[in-house]
Nucleic acid binder design. Structure first.
Lengths: 340, 340
DNA sequence: CTGAAAGCGCTTACAG
DNA sequence: CTGAAAGCGCTTACAG
């Protein structure tokens, strides 16, 4: 019928008709293939533009078996880390023209598994950060050929491409810094004992002390409240330390607040250090010595690796370790008991 | 061929064959339609399970014209807000079985437009937060029939479903609190003059003062540095205030740090208040009076509205206002100049 | 309740 | 360089 009005979304057929070519040529022109004349390409592109044509991604992915989308599966994370990671991944994804399907806040392995399954078929690859996931969960819920990169997740018994934070090294560096600035009784407030990061940080602390000093550990759980409790315990106890290394910054902030209330001066009486370098670490009084991880960068690099896997590169043996950087601030200044 | 091995992802055809029914029945059973016998459904489900079948979403969306995915478009946001919003949206989306396509960090209208276009066809609806977007951008880059909910975005000249934060009301409440606790020279450190939130907060401040006190405004830009600058200006100037209401918490933190350096006591010499209630607001010394917005809740409710739109409900006239809640903390305690 | 078949909108050998 | 046609994996009238 002549003079017909387009009621529906235009398809490639409409574009082809308007450009007076076959759908095959329209497809080729649209996709930037080189087996079309320049004249054809121009006509097709003009037609597409005038119709405000956009390909149906479902149809395309049905033919190409690609979705140009990657999934990001996250656990229930605290604010800063979470958003920095998404930011880093998102920027890298956008640069490569990949879309990002995000799912967060998964409390246990079951939830994570459900999400993995629901993403199967929607994505070309998966970025997974989940402390709950193990080899079985991975094997049961994903196709073997779906590229996947693990973020800071220890998956027992599986060799998968992963980005690991060197928690041991970071904790070691922080502790050595305290030792070398003259502190003689360095306590550690740990994270949850079941948490792998937490275990590694504690091990780094203990190894750094090895021989020179006895270790002094109060168990915490990465929360501010646990930092408060631990600080009170340490200060009022019989083994008062002259330095505290908290397993993360949030815990260190708890220590700081409690020490302040107890009238203990930081760093003069007790030096303090954390881990992560959350933005808040710069803002406390005094500001906080810590080990910095560039989360956004970590996310971006992980996406690059995943993208390589999607492109068909063999990434199965790739595994990168991110080394935290010691950031010395005022909370650990001066000399401690031994003077400086 | 008998004994053949499935090399590829199983399709509904494989499921149907194994269950010994037609693909039509398989489809119906899989989708929970009621026009299949219980026996058929069971056979199909069992077959699907044993094959680890998962529907190809592209194919499905080609038939159904739905993607079961919604897009979330964000500007370049500061950490806390960003992650809280995603968390809220994600949780609500998961509950409804919707997937979430996220794109963030868009500096200007062009970038936002590109993202909107790239999401067209991939999503059933869009959640858009962008200060840069206007009616033209929206109209040019989206289908008219794509449901969309705006988040805290003023779109001049368009009537679209939106969630607006009552910035005026929040600022008014904070300012009234300062007035009523006896402060007599209340200054305001504004956000960027071009920013709508910023304008509204300033208007709230001015309206709350109306008549009783003169307004005293220093222009800022929502950054900590601008808070520092403004505080210094106010304290060293000839019109020293006894209270400062900063346009957001980050600015207020800047004020606090600068006041501390200048030896000005908060709240004794100068009361201080912010806006947003970022987590840091509880942690400063003294902790910060502010106006709290429940961002995660906002995100969740916005998704619910969008989902209703996707289901075909008419949401074009819906517009919700989120009222911030005054949170009084120690930074505004006591009486100020007039005593308390 | 069930099945054969058309159709959704693309891409890609294949033949020319 | 171009086009006709098959095929990707689903859903859904339609007929029975």
């Amino acid at each position: 019928v002549n003079g017909e009005v387009l009621l529906k979304r235009p398809t490639i057929r409409d574009v082809a008709r308007l450009a007076d070519v076959s759908v095959a040529s329209a497809s080729r022109a649209l996709n930037g293939l080189d087996n079309v004349t320049e004249a054809t390409r121009e006509r097709v592109l003009a037609a597409a533009k005038s119709l405000r044509y956009l390909p149906h991604t479902g149809a395309r992915s049905l033919s190409t078996r690609r979705t140009d989308t990657v999934g990001l599966i996250l656990p229930d994370l605290y604010g800063e880390f979470f958003s920095e990671l998404i930011r880093g991944v998102d920027m890298a994804a956008r640069e490569r023209g990949l879309h990002l399907l995000v799912s967060s806040s998964h409390g246990d392995a079951d939830e994570a598994a459900t999400v993995m399954r629901s993403m199967r078929g929607r994505v070309d690859g998966l970025l997974v950060m989940s402390p709950h996931v193990d080899a079985t969960v991975l094997a049961d819920n994903l196709d073997d050929d779906l590229p996947i990169v693990l973020l800071n997740t220890r998956v027992a018994g599986v060799r998968r491409p992963a980005f690991q934070v060197d928690n041991h090294g970071g904790a070691h560096a922080v502790t050595r810094h305290l030792v070398e600035s003259g502190r003689r009784r360095i306590a550690h407030v740990s994270g949850p004992p079941s948490n792998f990061d937490s275990q590694e940080r504690r091990r780094g602390y203990e190894d750094a002390l090895a021989g020179e000093q006895a270790s002094l550990v109060v168990e915490g759980d990465f929360s501010e409240a646990s930092g408060r409790r631990a600080a009170r315990l340490l200060v009022t106890g019989s083994m008062r330390p002259d330095a505290i290394f908290a397993a993360n910054d949030t815990t260190a902030v708890g220590c700081l607040l409690e020490l302040r209330e107890l009238g203990v001066k930081v760093p003069d009486d007790i030096a303090l250090a954390g881990f992560d370098d959350i933005p808040l670490a710069r803002l406390t009084e005094p500001d906080l010595t810590t080990a910095r991880i560039d989360i956004a960068d970590l996310g971006g690099r992980a996406l690059e690796l995943l993208a390589a896997g999607v492109e068909g590169e063999d990434i199965e043996r790739s595994s990168e370790t991110v080394r935290p950087v010691l950031v010395v601030r005022r909370s650990s200044a001066g000399g401690g008991t031994a003077g400086a």
